[in-house]
Write a protein that binds this DNA or RNA. Structure first.
Lengths: 323, 323
DNA sequence: CTGTTAGCGCATTCAA
DNA sequence: TTGAATGCGCTAACAG
């Protein structure tokens, strides 16, 4: 910057202003300075600026993984919106582990982000304490709960379980099974489903829960294990569409007709209300729209808006009817 | 930090050392200082440190979009590896637009990243010049070319086109079509395919290229357009698996048997050598492994290693045979 | 409208 | 092994 100032024959302060607050600089001076900036290929050091202004224009996004469309689509949407507003995004995948989230958060806090997006509402006491003390805008996404840190954008996973139970029970399904991984939010959907079914008089729900990543294999193994154990489910609620695809594959290889003999219900369907896969029913969440809401909520907070408590985003059951 | 120093009864320099280079500090002092750090919940300001050391421990990753598993899986892998090595990742989605890439790069360069990951090898002259002048480690991923900026990790999209042409031509397919979006790398695969087919005596290849995002709809519309125009392809090469799924759906709705009447070939198959979808053939790329290679190459450069030119990662044609 | 002074929070480089 | 002075590159606040 000093070099630019020298070459332009002005002080560094004028260069700084020409770049950051051009309206404060005489037009002729400004044009000249900016021309020099361009010719020298000068790019201001944001970190130095951040140090001086105590605003980093950086946002941290912590989420389990981006190798899963349900998250990556939301993140894409969040980053895009924030980027347009002049914020850059630091992405930290926690791998569903609270300890990891804690370590990552510590590392990221070192960059003094202006705002933070977290996934879910279950955080270690350490994290909650730190965040509360920092008085930094935080948006918790993908979930709603009573213990809100700041702002939450998402939906109730309990409601999903209940809605699924009600919908398919009303259609006459009585033999249920659940297949998936032990993701905390998936488990909440599952437990809520089971509780509701019990109220409806269905007491037996077979479960196949794996402590691995959500891959196709989980679905294959899950259905195989169920059938080999003698279960004959009419409907299977999976923890994600990925898992559901595995169930479909296993069903196909065993010549089980879907959805006629077996209804397979996934979760996610990021394609927003369209069936992305033949034969598969799903609980559809509009990840892109949710990402948008997250970004908007965060931006309002960043611009000094007050806390907004909760934003309830919607979900929808898309059922593949028997043919 | 001053507060910590005060409370611990030492100078700020000792606090700094206790944290960054503990081996330089007397054990008793160190333990005491670190205890105070912990008790106060102090997190060092990385930006200030970066300003002083001129090392940001920040890596920028520019890629078209993360809302596409072929990228998100690679990025997940890159971030994970870099994170373990103490680097944080700034993610910038360019939306396939070179101008956007240029703007984003400028913004990101302001944070003085220690390294950069770019997607593809086609960059504006501006970008090439800037990067060359900065002498900052750059890894170009997902592609190989002759004009290398620094290090490249990827595979030749021309080779993909040739391999596909050879493989399916040898199986007897003569009626070809291509459906997809105008992503530059997809177009290279496509053109290479067509050129090779011409060498093999196939002169007519129907094309349906859309200038939109790679959605399911592209595939549906693409196949519909082909058929409505009277084309009767035996094999369709799609720009991605997502598009291929759309082709499958349209084929299903028209009662066209896949792969018996029509072979559908996608691109991506991130599940690493397994068929993720029934009836779909695909060119399988191991995105996770590629991400790993990208991270390793970048880390070697960050640690002072010399340029390594190119790392050729593999791809594989997975064919769904007729039943 | 422009320049000067001071300091953001840390680490390098000496000296003790 | 520890501390003091200095500067990293920028901007807030004030003076001119």
């Amino acid at each position: 910057m000093k070099d630019v100032a020298l070459k332009a024959g002005v002080s560094v302060m004028t260069v700084s202003r020409a770049i950051q607050r051009p309206e404060l600089v005489n037009q002729a001076t400004r044009e000249h300075v900016l021309e020099v900036v361009r010719s020298m290929g000068y790019v201001p050091n944001i970190m130095a600026g951040a140090l001086a202004t105590r605003k980093s224009r950086l946002v941290a996004i912590l989420l389990p993984t981006i190798a899963n469309s349900i998250y990556s689509i939301a993140v894409q949407s969040i980053i895009g919106r924030l980027s347009a507003a002049g914020y850059q995004s630091l992405v930290g995948p926690t791998g569903y582990s609270p300890e990891n989230e804690e370590l990552l958060l510590d590392a990221i806090l070192g960059r003094r982000p202006d705002g933070i997006v977290l996934t879910g509402t279950l955080h270690t006491p350490n994290i909650r304490a730190r965040l509360a003390a920092l008085r930094i805008p935080v948006v918790e996404a993908w979930d709603l709960s009573d213990a809100l840190l700041d702002t939450q954008v998402g939906f109730s996973h309990e409601k999903v379980g209940i809605a699924v139970a009600d919908h398919f029970h009303a259609k006459g399904y009585r033999q249920w099974a659940v297949v998936g991984i032990d993701d905390p939010r998936a488990m909440r959907r599952c437990h809520s489903l089971i509780a509701r079914l019990q109220e409806l008089g269905v007491s037996q729900v077979q479960q196949q829960i794996f402590a691995t990543e959500a891959t196709w294999e989980v679905g294959r193994k899950g259905l195989a294990a169920l059938l080999d154990a003698g279960a004959r489910p009419q409907v299977i609620f999976c923890s994600s569409d990925t898992v559901a695809l595995g169930v479909l594959a296993e069903a196909a290889s065993r010549k089980i007709a879907v959805p006629d003999e077996l209804a397979v219900l996934g979760f996610g369907n990021i394609s927003n209300g369209q069936f992305a896969y033949p034969a598969l029913s799903t609980v559809s969440v509009n990840a892109q729209e949710m990402g948008h809401q997250v970004a908007e909520a965060l931006l309002r907070r960043l611009e000094g808006g007050s806390r907004e408590a909760q934003v309830d985003t919607s979900f929808e059951i898309l059922e593949r009817e028997s043919t």
